[in-house]
Amino acid sequence: MHISDGILSPPILAGGAVLAAAGVAQGLRKIRDDDIPKTALLTAAFFVTSLVHIPAGPTSVHLLLNGLIGILLGWAAFPALLIGLLFQSLLFGHGGLSVLGVHTATVGIPAVAFGLAWRRWAAAMPPPKAAGLAGLGAGLCVALTALFTATILVFSGSHWLTTAKAFLAAHAVLMAGEAFLTFFAVAFLLRVRPTLLLGEAK
């Protein structure tokens, strides 16, 4: 679900771009040279999964997975999302160039905040609990992204109110799915390769 070019007001676009730039700068600082292949391949992997469409009633939704991205990449989620969104815009015409900053910020801020928190809390938890927390957080990330987007839509003009409501409703559906999916994905990763998510200590 993307907002296209032309809708949001210039101050909001500028604000989003500034936030995204700050996030990307911090993300790039945190990426060591040796992390570049890892980050890039996860970027490509999440780009691929964002093309998966799941039928939902008369329409279909595509995966966002920002909770899982945050867990796996931490701060590096910002540059990863920026690149993924740029590819979507150039290769498919989804989203737009002027909204790149806003999208990176609305998707990335919940992802990074939750991802960093999860890594701290999950280290002290048994795996099923850690996966449960990941699922809940992933649902929350989708909800926050939708809420941010709906809010900036309304701030761009009161005539977007109905659109904002429809946007929230569509994401409520996705939220539940992403929570389950992330729960199972994290449970799988914790079982198959525990050191991946929680470091060597566990």
């Binding site: 040796d34 292949p37 890892k38 890039a40 391949l41 996860l42 490509a44 992997a45 691929v48 999964t49 998966v52 799941i54 039928p55 939902a56 009633g57 995966l63 997975l65 899982l68 796996l72 799915g177 389950f180 999916l181 992330t182 729960f183 199972f184 994905a185 994290v186 449970a187 799988f188 990763l189 198959v192 390769r193 991946l196």
Partner: peptide, 28 residues
């Protein structure tokens, strides 16, 4: 739409993540 789909997709996404990371390791 349903729990079975989410569960399967969860495992598939997990599998893709593992394959990406292994490949990244080889590339590095």
């Amino acid at each position: 739409w349903g729990p079975h789909t989410w569960r399967t997709l969860g495992a598939l996404v997990g599998g893709l993540v593992l394959r990406s990371l292994d490949r990244a390791e080889q590339i590095l």
